Computed example of a mutant assay.
Amino acid sequence: MSKLPEQDIEKKLLRFPEWEYFDNALHAEFEFENFKDCFSAMSRIAFECEAQNHHPNWSNVYNVLSISLSTHDSGGVTDKDFKLAEAIENIVEPEDE
């Protein structure tokens, strides 16, 4: 899979308002009511990542999940990252701020 040009990434991001592009990756941060809800979402995301054979860089502190997506083999963001971002969006329901 080939790395997408920045203009294509920016255009695709219009469908993903929770996500930003910087440091050659897609980034999002999701806040949950508590740690249990955050960890539950991470578990559901993990199953989807295995199904797609595509794994994010992520971290969580209490109720906040930070995710970074890029296709390491391609050296940047590919359609594979947007496919996973879409799946994550369907799993995660971020709280209204």
Rank of each mutant, 00 (worst) to 15 (best):
W19G: 05
I88Y: 05
F35W: 15
L13C: 02
Q52W: 07
R44C: 12
S59I: 01
E95D: 04
E97T: 00
P56G: 09
D73W: 07
D73H: 12
H54N: 09
V77K: 07
D73S: 15
N53D: 15
Q52R: 15
E33N: 06
L14I: 01
F47E: 15
L69H: 09
I9D: 07
H54M: 05
S68E: 11
T71N: 05
K11H: 09
F30P: 00
V77E: 03
E95H: 01
N34Y: 08
S2D: 13
K36S: 15
G76N: 00
S66C: 08
S66Y: 11
E86K: 15
L84R: 05
T78I: 00
H54T: 08
D73V: 01
S43P: 02
S74E: 08
A87T: 13
Y62A: 07
D8K: 07
K83E: 14
H27T: 09
K83F: 11
E20D: 14
K83Q: 14
E50C: 07
A46F: 11
V64M: 12
E20A: 13
V61Q: 09
N53K: 15
I67D: 06
F82N: 05
C38L: 02
E95V: 11
N53T: 11
L84I: 03
N90F: 02
C38N: 11
E50T: 13
A41H: 08
L69W: 03
S74P: 00
